[in-house]
Simulated assay, not measured.
Amino acid sequence: MEIRQMSVGTMAVCCYIVSCPQTRQAAIVDPGGDEERILAEVKRAGLDVRYIIATHGHPDHVCGIRRIKEATGAEIIMHRADAAFFWQPDTQNYFSMLGLEPSPLPDRLVEDGDIIELGNEQLQVIHTPGHTPGGICLLCGQDLLTGDTLFVGGIGRTDFPGGSHQQLMNSIKDRLMTLPGDTIVWPGHGYGGSRSTLAEELQTNPFL
């Protein structure tokens, strides 16, 4: 799997362009702004974008989805629980304060253990609730895209509607830390080159 990490938008969201080296099929994960820059990188790399994947439904991670879908025709993928939660009127009203565009309705809903085929590569969906009800991580071999579940030196906040600190810690302990220690952590926020391993986080992350 080829992974391109881009820091986008006003909240330094880590957007990922993941692709199969053989087929050039690609997915864009969490396009949280700077859509034209993302699309320019896709064009430069000669990629065929099949999917737009949201690790969760917070507007800072999904505000670029509509523009990316219009440009590529790719399917929008989100966990079933976040699709249900973020289209509730009360939830939409709360997050409208951020002034960011919500995602269009997803084309495909996923659950824990689902596989997203990307050419000769596979992304495994790991449901990690806590930051949001339907937060997910994506595992491909040694690479783990953790969204806002786990950061380099931090964890996702849980004070927004739908958040639960205990649930988040259980997700990290029971769903992520059971993976090999050399699994590479690609977080949902940070600047260029932001990554770690599960072993490093277990040793140095103050929340763990």
Rank of each mutant, 00 (worst) to 15 (best):
41 E>I: 05
41 E>C: 10
44 R>L: 12
45 A>Q: 15
46 G>W: 13
46 G>L: 05
47 L>Q: 11
48 D>Q: 11
50 R>W: 00
52 I>D: 10
54 A>W: 01
54 A>V: 10
54 A>N: 14
56 H>N: 13
59 P>D: 12
59 P>N: 15
61 H>G: 14
63 C>I: 08
63 C>T: 15
63 C>E: 12
63 C>D: 12
66 R>I: 03
68 I>A: 12
68 I>E: 09
73 G>C: 11
74 A>E: 08
75 E>I: 03
76 I>P: 00
77 I>Q: 06
78 M>Y: 04
79 H>A: 14
79 H>T: 10
80 R>T: 15
82 D>V: 03
85 F>H: 13
85 F>K: 12
86 F>K: 01
87 W>Y: 15
87 W>R: 15
87 W>L: 08
88 Q>Y: 04
88 Q>H: 10
89 P>K: 11
91 T>D: 07
93 N>H: 11
94 Y>Q: 06
101 E>R: 06
101 E>D: 13
101 E>Q: 13
106 P>T: 10
111 E>I: 08
112 D>I: 01
113 G>R: 00
113 G>K: 01
114 D>F: 05
116 I>P: 01
117 E>M: 05
117 E>C: 07
122 Q>S: 10
122 Q>T: 13
123 L>I: 03
126 I>Q: 04
132 T>F: 02
136 I>C: 09
136 I>F: 01
137 C>Q: 02
138 L>E: 00
138 L>R: 01
140 C>I: 01
140 C>L: 01
141 G>V: 04
141 G>I: 04
142 Q>N: 15
148 D>K: 04
149 T>I: 12
150 L>V: 11
152 V>S: 07
152 V>R: 10
153 G>V: 08
155 I>N: 08
156 G>K: 04
160 F>A: 12
162 G>M: 03
164 S>V: 03
164 S>F: 02
167 Q>L: 14
